[in-house]
């Protein structure tokens, strides 16, 4: 069994969480295969110790943080968030971790830092999917500075009170609950503050299908998936998808005045 993480619950979703088994066995993590159950089968070869995360770019105090130190650096919280995949399925997951803002404040962003760029480990010997050309490797993602500093934006070290299973993005992943799941980059090795919008993996692959913002939006369809509804894992019938995945009260202000159809 995976090591336990002690944390205080600071946010509830107000609905039952998806079972631990389902959260562990239904993953999109193309570094370990295309099938939903491939990551749970293949992620065993990922070595999450030792692990370091480089935080650099436009910051006053760049550095390399060891994952064990990172686990003790900030008070851990448990947050139950809805998780909405662009493929129109969803889960409710109790994450353990800390707000990204805490880490960013620690390294002291410079005034010209406008975006945060994230990068996943690139090592085909541990991540066999990186031998295929399904995406450009390593996987990269990004957030605007105000999105990154938002109190909901979370760095997860665990789920269900235990350290992250490898297939869920161990040892450290991003969780942005109002955006489609692909924004929540897994197995992060580098966080870089930059002045320009960084490239993001799915946007590079299909710019007309996956935007930089990727906010959950029932009014804007994907070429393949109708986004007005979703199937909650464990349910039999679809349910309605909420704007910003139900977090509109928290985050809609970030996008005031923006055309969310064009900036999908």
């Amino acid at each position: 069994a995976l090591a336990r993480l002690v944390a205080k619950r600071t946010r509830d979703a107000g609905e039952p969480a998806t079972s631990y088994e389902n959260v562990k066995h239904y993953n999109n993590f193309y570094e370990f295969g295309f099938g939903k159950e491939d990551p749970s089968r293949n992620a065993g070869r990922l070595r999450t110790h030792p692990w370091t995360v480089k935080v650099d770019g436009l910051v006053a105090k760049p550095g390399v943080v060891d994952i064990d130190r990172l686990t003790r650096l900030f008070p851990l919280e448990e947050r139950v968030y809805r998780h909405r995949c662009v493929e129109a399925w969803s889960m409710v997951i109790p994450w353990t971790g800390f707000p990204l803002a805490a880490l960013l404040k620690m390294v002291e962003p410079l005034s010209n830092a406008r975006y945060v760029a994230f990068e996943t480990l690139h090592d085909p010997s541990q991540m066999p999917g990186q031998r295929t050309r399904s995406l450009q490797w390593p996987y990269v993602e990004g957030l605007r500075m105000d999105e990154a500093m938002h109190p909901l934006t979370f760095m997860a070290l665990g789920l269900y009170g235990r350290v992250l299973p490898n297939q869920n993005g161990a040892p450290l992943r991003l969780v942005v609950p109002w955006k489609y799941g692909f924004k929540s980059i897994k197995s992060i090795v580098r966080i870089r503050l930059v002045d320009r919008q960084p490239p993001t993996s799915w946007n590079l692959t299909a710019p007309d299908e996956y935007g930089f913002f990727a906010n959950v939006n029932p009014a804007v369809d994907h070429p393949r998936w109708t986004q007005s509804r979703e199937r909650r894992i464990g349910d039999w019938l679809p349910r309605r998808t909420l704007p910003f995945n139900g977090y509109a009260d928290d985050v809609a202000g970030l996008y005031r005045g923006m055309n969310l159809v064009r900036n999908f």
Binding site: T18, Y26, E37, W236
Partner: peptide, 15 residues
Amino acid sequence: VSPLDAGLTAEPVAE
């Protein structure tokens, strides 16, 4: 039996 144990993944309809 849970969909996962029945071999139809966590999302049996899609599978």
